[in-house]
Amino acid sequence: MTTAYSLSRKQGWRRFTDTPARTRPERMSPTALTRLAPLERAHYNDSRHDWHANFGTIATPQLKQVREELELIVASNRQDSDRVRGAAVIDGFPGLGKTTMANLFARDYDRTARQLGGETTEAGDERIPVFRVGLTSNTTLRTLNKMICEFYGHPGAANGTAAQLATFALDCVLKCETRIGIIDDVHFINQNSKDGLAVSNHLKWLANELPVTFIYAGVGLTERRFFDEGLSGESTALAQTAARWTRLEVASFDRDDSWTGLIKAIEKQLILAKARPGKLVALDDYLFERTGGHIGSLITLVTRGCFKAIANGTESLSRELLETIRIDEAAERSRKRRAAETKKRVRKKEGAGR
């Protein structure tokens, strides 16, 4: 059974870092499935639903590339505290796994840091190698500081001015020997508003004062001119963004071998009684038409499809079943255009084979 927790609190983050990988349920044959007693089948189906929703991360080319870049940036940020460290920003369109990439890298870093340094610092404080917060559309300088304090469970997080909360946050980072700070959803920062400008400048202050490597994640930051804003005119203070942040782009999949490889990897994770190797891969054109190469949309479609296949007893994913499932609106809206592209590609293949 899935347990709810928040990665914006140290307890939830610790659960994320320390919980072992799920045990993969056994794949039963259709005959063995029919022999289960009603309660046994209910428990078995529940374990399969949980598995399909959480079967782990596929090591896509995009994930591997971003991870290598993050390892390089973090490992090379060994400057003394009087020097500013460079930051990384994971940028791309929605549904491409940016947050997952940041979280998984930071999780592994957290585990290694505690293994090497111990669960407590030399001064006896809890070692917390990573903190993580997510911005909202109404984040202000004070609420950003408050969110950092709330991650650590600082008793002063409920009250205090922005300046006081900033001091508390600095104390937490120093005492707990934090080395990575994840700031998610930075696209919510409106650099043209008073609060947005204050938050943007405060991120620079945090980078100056905290001995951590910041990893930011956001949607369409280049298109929003997030890095260009402030390079001239009245907002010249924002020029530091482009100078200090290393942009790591996450691209959607193209309709090529990497897409087919992703489908193959997902197919191996399915626990359906009537699933057959290659059946899902045969739908790779259709799956691209439905999702546009966005891994988030693909996982949603497959997960919901598995739930329905188990619930209605078909125990297999087919185009007919997947056609009954709706996913995110962005994918649905652009489906007609991709369907036309798919037909054109199929006709081209058929023509080449004659």
Rank of each mutant, 00 (worst) to 15 (best):
residue 68 E to R: 13
residue 65 Q to W: 07
residue 53 A to I: 04
residue 97 G to Q: 07
residue 77 N to L: 08
residue 78 R to L: 10
residue 72 L to R: 14
residue 69 E to F: 00
residue 66 V to M: 02
residue 60 T to G: 02
residue 43 H to Q: 15
residue 69 E to G: 03
residue 90 I to T: 12
residue 60 T to E: 09
residue 38 P to S: 09
residue 64 K to E: 14
residue 40 E to N: 08
residue 75 A to L: 10
residue 61 P to I: 00
residue 52 H to S: 06
residue 45 N to H: 11
residue 84 V to Y: 08
residue 76 S to E: 12
residue 64 K to Y: 05
residue 60 T to A: 05
residue 69 E to M: 03
residue 56 G to D: 04
residue 73 I to M: 09
residue 44 Y to S: 02
residue 69 E to Q: 14
residue 42 A to S: 11
residue 51 W to A: 02
residue 66 V to C: 07
residue 42 A to L: 14
residue 96 L to K: 02
residue 67 R to H: 13
residue 69 E to D: 13
residue 63 L to A: 08
residue 42 A to V: 02
residue 87 A to L: 11
residue 43 H to D: 15
residue 46 D to C: 10
residue 82 D to S: 10
residue 87 A to M: 13
residue 76 S to I: 03
residue 62 Q to L: 02
residue 39 L to A: 15
residue 59 A to Q: 14
residue 48 R to I: 15
residue 75 A to M: 08
residue 77 N to K: 05
residue 75 A to R: 14
residue 70 L to S: 03
residue 87 A to N: 04
residue 55 F to M: 07
residue 45 N to K: 06
residue 81 S to F: 02
residue 55 F to R: 07
residue 63 L to P: 00
residue 76 S to N: 08
residue 59 A to M: 14
residue 86 G to A: 12
residue 65 Q to I: 06
residue 59 A to T: 12
residue 95 G to Y: 06
residue 59 A to I: 12
residue 44 Y to A: 05
residue 68 E to I: 10
residue 55 F to S: 03
residue 81 S to I: 01
residue 94 P to E: 00
residue 80 D to G: 09
residue 55 F to W: 13
residue 66 V to S: 05
residue 61 P to Q: 01
residue 82 D to L: 11
residue 40 E to K: 13
residue 65 Q to R: 12
residue 73 I to Q: 05
residue 37 A to K: 15
residue 37 A to M: 10
residue 43 H to F: 14
residue 92 G to M: 11
residue 78 R to W: 05
residue 90 I to P: 00
residue 81 S to D: 13
residue 74 V to A: 04
residue 70 L to E: 02
residue 62 Q to R: 11
residue 50 D to H: 11
residue 54 N to S: 12
residue 79 Q to C: 05
residue 81 S to E: 13
residue 61 P to N: 05
residue 67 R to S: 10
residue 94 P to A: 07
residue 63 L to Y: 05
residue 62 Q to E: 15
residue 83 R to D: 11
residue 68 E to K: 13
residue 55 F to K: 08
residue 77 N to Y: 01
residue 62 Q to N: 12
residue 80 D to I: 01
residue 67 R to N: 15
residue 95 G to N: 03
residue 53 A to M: 07
residue 43 H to W: 12
residue 52 H to G: 03
residue 89 V to E: 03
residue 67 R to F: 04
residue 82 D to K: 11
residue 93 F to S: 08
residue 83 R to S: 10
residue 50 D to E: 14
residue 65 Q to L: 08
